[in-house]
């Protein structure tokens, strides 16, 4: 039983051209996602429609778009709820449009990298094994760390970030301060800071607190936490670092 069609307006943009809206009537049912609707348009109406996608199960982080002004993952947002109003799908805010719904990812990755999202100090390499005969008994217990449930819980939620950039699209500060390190990168810094195996707190703190575009632009509006599809709480991560910096 078809539920009929829904009006889907897509904000499109070719490189070097101004954006334009195009509207399509897309057949849908209760399980049609925004990504399904985009696929349908690409397969049946306009093959040039450009958007990223891969896993279709909300873990690869590829398909972030704005739906009626709100950043969402297209694969886990269902159109049936918008049947009467229709939907407008646009590229994520606060990122340069590359083509249609594909936006720049380099800026985000540079910010992520600026937060030192890796184990510090750098662990000594285990011997590389490229030849036979060196795979014998190892003292595994000596090679692995131990963590209590509490130690794991201290960073487990922060480690759920899928780099989808929805929080960057939602953050009002990024409209004013494009260089702001931003929610996901700072949350990821705290993911490492809170990991009992890591000792890089000071280095990350310096990078984020001795930097006016680090933690300081955040106004604690909470939009990042509200749009996160994985339950990460970047607003709290930033607030914790701000308090630490102020000696609270």
């Amino acid at each position: 039983m078809s539920e009929g069609t829904i009006r889907v307006t897509v904000t499109r943009q070719e490189p070097g051209q101004p954006p334009r809206d195009e509207t399509y009537d897309v057949p849908f049912d209760e399980r049609t996602s925004v990504l399904d609707a985009l696929d349908w348009i690409k397969d049946t109406v306009d093959a040039t429609l450009t958007f990223r996608w891969s896993c279709r199960s909300a873990v690869c982080g590829s398909c972030g778009v704005m739906v009626n002004g709100r950043p969402v993952l297209g694969c886990e947002t269902f159109v049936a709820g918008y049947a009467t109003s229709g939907i407008t799908v646009g590229p994520m805010s606060h990122a340069a449009v590359q083509r249609d719904l594909a936006v720049d990812t380099e800026d985000f990755l540079a910010k992520l990298r600026s937060a030192f999202p890796w184990m510090l100090p750098e662990p000594a390499a285990l011997a590389v094994e490229g030849s036979a005969g060196d795979g014998g008994a190892v003292d595994l217990a000596a090679l692995v760390s131990t963590q209590t449930l509490e130690q794991l819980e201290a960073f487990r939620t922060l480690a759920q970030c899928i780099d989808c950039m929805l929080c960057y699209a939602a953050c009002p500060v990024l409209a004013e301060v494009p260089g702001f390190t931003g929610p996901a990168a700072i949350a990821t810094a705290q993911r490492w800071n809170h990991d009992s195996r890591d000792g890089g707190d000071e280095q990350r703190f310096e990078a984020l607190a001795d930097n006016e575009e680090g933690i300081w632009p955040c106004i604690q509006n909470g939009a990042c936490t509200r749009v996160c599809p994985k339950g990460v709480d970047p607003a709290k991560a930033i607030k914790d670092l701000q308090r630490l910096a102020m000696g609270a």
Binding site: W118, M119, P123, L126, E129, G135, V138, L140, A141, L143, V144, S145, T146, Q147, T148, L149, Q151, L152, F155, R156, A159, W192, D195, R197, D198
Partner: peptide, 23 residues
Amino acid sequence: RAPRELARLDRLGMPWSRDDSGR
């Protein structure tokens, strides 16, 4: 070589689920 590679990931920060002794 599997256990050693899994241990290597632990050193790189893999959030392995843990048993009661923390391993």
